[in-house]
Design a binder for these strands. Sequence first.
DNA 1: TTGTAGGCGTTATCAT
DNA 2: ATGATAACGCCTACAA
Lengths: 332, 332
Amino acid sequence: MRTTIKDIARILGINVSTVSRALKDHKDISIETRSEVKRVANELHYHPNLMAINLRNRRSRLIGLIIPEITMFFFPSVIQGIEDVLHRNGYNLLMLQSSDQLQRETENVHLCTENGVEGLLLSVSRQTVTTEHLNELQTLGVPIVLFDKVIEKTNLPQIIIDDAAAAGQAVLHLQERGATEIVGIFGNPNLSITQKRIEGFRRALLQQGLTVRSDAILFAENTTEALRITRTAMQSSAPPNGIFTMSDEILAGVLPALRQEKIAIPRQCKVISMSDGALPHYLEPLVTYIHHSGYEVGATAAKRLCEWIANKDLVLPKLNILPVTLVQQQST
Amino acid sequence: MRTTIKDIARILGINVSTVSRALKDHKDISIETRSEVKRVANELHYHPNLMAINLRNRRSRLIGLIIPEITMFFFPSVIQGIEDVLHRNGYNLLMLQSSDQLQRETENVHLCTENGVEGLLLSVSRQTVTTEHLNELQTLGVPIVLFDKVIEKTNLPQIIIDDAAAAGQAVLHLQERGATEIVGIFGNPNLSITQKRIEGFRRALLQQGLTVRSDAILFAENTTEALRITRTAMQSSAPPNGIFTMSDEILAGVLPALRQEKIAIPRQCKVISMSDGALPHYLEPLVTYIHHSGYEVGATAAKRLCEWIANKDLVLPKLNILPVTLVQQQST
DNA sequence: TTGTAGGCGTTATCAT
DNA sequence: ATGATAACGCCTACAA
């Protein structure tokens, strides 16, 4: 049985309200009483019961985080950014995975509602196209901030990078380095980040007067598929001499594929990726990438959320677009 | 204002207890009342308040997870394993990072106590040498399971791999493949996993009659240090022809270092690592590794914890040692 | 079949 | 300076 303020009150022969106040150094309580109370509290290893406090105060100090899946790419640093900021603001993190399923995402939203989270950070699943499942939280006035994998049609604030521009910049760079036949490999096409990166990619191809091959835009749901699809592309009669990958996950398949196909990088084929800057440094050759910081995305999302919670009247800008930078290495 | 059973009761002109029971299909309540209650509950978007329920039931359905840091290696899959199992058992995950600091770890234990977690999964920081800071939770009878980065001197159950054997197996393999001058690169020496891997490494060297070089055991706190230290080793008058790395994090520095030093792998130097099996497949050449599954470690830890919570009298075995397997690739 | 009342641990309000 | 009490939302004997 854990000690409660009742226990302390009983032992000291005083009232619970006195104990409660003494514990938080309320100035009405005499110094002696305060120290007495604290002494006993210490002896009995008293710890306040947050469930009771939260119930009473109608605050949970809990923030929900729902992401598709914790892979080794991108999300670890995002979570770090989130956890750091939340911790500094006195919030705790309720971590939930949707496994890229709308149903699990919806379940998780329920859980957030029921646990009384004060805010939600959400990166949506592949199957999510509306914000309907967020209504219950929104109705309760719980701030929600989307990040990375967001939804277009919504008024919820979003923390993202300029996906289209980043993809465009990549194409430009490939061209400058001499690539003429460029292929882009993208993730799940339902995601808005995929759409935007495709759009930027395609527009850049056109603007640079580059040929838009029939296989210019390829899709891979994971690393394995990326490997397979790349090999196929390289075995075609007219293999590309420039490849853009929209994520580390895809890049991780592309490089081994090129190796298996004995393609010299960058001589026969140049490679550029979007990345948060870890994987490209482990690969051979070192891969040129458009850097977008997962940590920053997470930290910014958390920061905005905290601001919003602190001031419910605050209207966050709908878009918070983080900068990206080109890091040139050996693959281009 | 969120709807409560009171609201529903008032609207229907019945008692809250009736509502409470109707909501959970208590058989005493008439079918009509039940459906009436549910109808209204739905209309008003009723969601039970878990803070209240938990307070009343003295259960939080919350499991605390404290890890040093969410890096891209190992922990993502561990967390996946944990989340999967907990979700299946109806628990939620309170995620906390210690940033490898005992003080933050202790703070986090407090948070767990105050949030009333029903169990704790802990992978300790570099600075943690005793379980003193867990006393408050243990006193309350909250089950604690350690995993991966554990502490030797404790009775708490631990989910680990056979670290010493794994390191030994690695040495054996290096030798079989022809390495004679073997160096091991290890992480923080305070951690028990480091100690055990060193022990297994050293013992295997001796047992195989291999020379134990003065630089046989090197330490690197992170990828960058691993890179630096490897370059230094390779520049020495007698560079090793076999390297064992105890983790992906270190391996990620070693391979680029060998590349920079223009060392041919495996011809001039063979490389083997312990890994959960992602990174070795991205590197060039593909790296041979002793596979230990992060997912299994996480899932097992969570499973054991749930069993223990379900049956407090259960005495978990102190050690739960998961198997490892050798995956040979091109680097040896 | 439904209602009443007490309590989970805490705090805020009002008294004393 | 301290005490009494009600309330946060829910559940459960026990009573009716």
